[in-house]
Amino acid sequence: MLQIDCPWCGSRDQDEFQCGGEAHIVRPATPEDLSDAQWADYLFNRANTKGAHAEQWCHSGGCRRWFNIVRDTVSYKISSVYQAGASPPQEKP
């Protein structure tokens, strides 16, 4: 049971959240200009990262805000939380 820091509400149980998968996948501005393969890449292909993974979460059982976290997919440690639309923090050296 993860404990996730909602940027607004603070630490809450995983039960209150929904995971939206990989973050920072931007919808193409002009889909009609894309080939089937390019569109499929946007639609289906994900990095499936082992290690630090930027992902979207929504505090659906609370304030209903979407935000991003960086979570290690092996240890489940959450290294940062940042608001939707913000850039992922640079990895510490």
Binding site: C9, R12, D15, E16, G61, G62, C63
Partner: peptide, 10 residues
């Protein structure tokens, strides 16, 4: 105040 899930209810 706080919003949460209580007995499957928001």
């Amino acid at each position: 105040c706080a919003q949460t899930v209580l007995a499957h209810s928001n």
